[in-house]
Simulated scan of single mutants.
Amino acid sequence: MTEQTVYFDIDKTLVDTQKLLQNCRQSLVQIGVLPENFDRAAKAYLGHLTSRTEYNPDDFIATVAFYQPEIEMTDISAAFWLAQNFAEALFPEVLTVLTQLSAHFTLGIFSQGNKDWQRKKLRKTGLAEFFSSDHLIIADYKLSPEIVTLLEENAIVIDDKSEVIQFLKTDGPTGLKPIQIDRQATSSNAQKIASLSALLPLLQL
């Protein structure tokens, strides 16, 4: 019998993206980037994006270098890509939950954004080993029909965005089970969980 697949979004589901930005900022400040220059670069770069899914870390690093020209871009890049910046941005329960789930389910990714950036996040956080290479669905717009049809019937999808959950409930494959993670929620149920740890009893683990 084929294992059931559990798909995870990346940002705000597995990785605390705000924490990741803070970690990278701190690492760059430690090599001499002025905090105000980092903030100016972030405002300028993010402000020109029509969607955060267009984010490209190499372009952001180049923007920081523009605002702090006396520091070599290679040094800025090295500080940005420090493994600890990424590992420390995981939500606390992620490694424990994925370890337990991977013994019983095939784990996949259902994410929206720059493919190279999302894959690098998985590698830098140490999460890549948990996920099947045949079940990495990363797209500029993941709710397009041709992308949604890549999800198997009866799969489980964990995502933080309510609009994604609602779309998958109405337009996803037969038997698909979308579950929203809302870390501000005060309790968990079969449709919404406050922590990934709540998946374990839901999936009878």
Rank of each mutant, 00 (worst) to 15 (best):
S102M: 11
K121T: 01
K121A: 04
T99Q: 15
A139E: 13
I156V: 13
K120E: 11
F130E: 08
I156R: 08
N114A: 09
E146V: 08
T149N: 14
T149L: 09
A103S: 15
D140S: 14
I156P: 03
A139F: 07
L107S: 04
I137Y: 03
D140M: 09
P145N: 06
S133G: 04
G113T: 04
N154D: 12
A139Q: 14
T149G: 05
F110Q: 12
D134C: 10
Q112F: 05
A128R: 12
F110A: 00
G108N: 09
N154M: 06
A139N: 13
L150A: 11
Q112W: 01
A139D: 05
I138R: 10
A155N: 06
S133C: 01
A139L: 07
T106Y: 09
A103T: 14
K142M: 08
H104C: 13
A128V: 04
G113R: 05
D140H: 15
S111K: 08
T125D: 06
G108P: 13
N154L: 05
A103I: 05
G126S: 07
E129T: 14
W117C: 09
R119M: 13
Q118A: 05
L151D: 01
T106G: 08
E152K: 15
I137D: 02
I138L: 05
S102P: 12
V148Q: 10
S133Y: 01
K115F: 05
L136T: 10
A155F: 01
E153D: 07
S133R: 08
K115Y: 14
Q118N: 09
V148R: 09
D116P: 06
A103V: 12
K142T: 07
G126P: 01
T125L: 01
F110C: 06
K124I: 00
I147W: 09
V148F: 07
V148L: 04
W117H: 13
K120R: 15
H135L: 03
R119T: 13
Y141F: 12
K120C: 01
A128H: 07
K120S: 14
D134V: 02
W117R: 03
L127C: 08
S133I: 02
L151R: 04
T99S: 15
A103H: 15
K121R: 08
H135F: 02
A155K: 04
F131G: 04
D140P: 12
L101F: 14
T106M: 11
K120N: 13
F110S: 04
L127M: 02
Y141D: 15
E153V: 00
I137M: 14
S111P: 02
Q118F: 02
T99M: 10
S111V: 04
K115I: 07
L151C: 03
D134P: 07
P145H: 05
G113W: 01
Y141R: 14
I109P: 05
L136C: 11
L101P: 00
T149R: 14
L136S: 10
I109G: 03
S132I: 00
I156G: 08
Q118S: 10
V148K: 03
P145W: 07
L136G: 06
L136P: 03
D116E: 11
K124L: 10
W117S: 12
P145Q: 04
D140Q: 15
E129D: 15
I137R: 07
L151G: 01
T125C: 06
L101C: 12
L101W: 08
T149D: 09
E152T: 09
D116F: 10
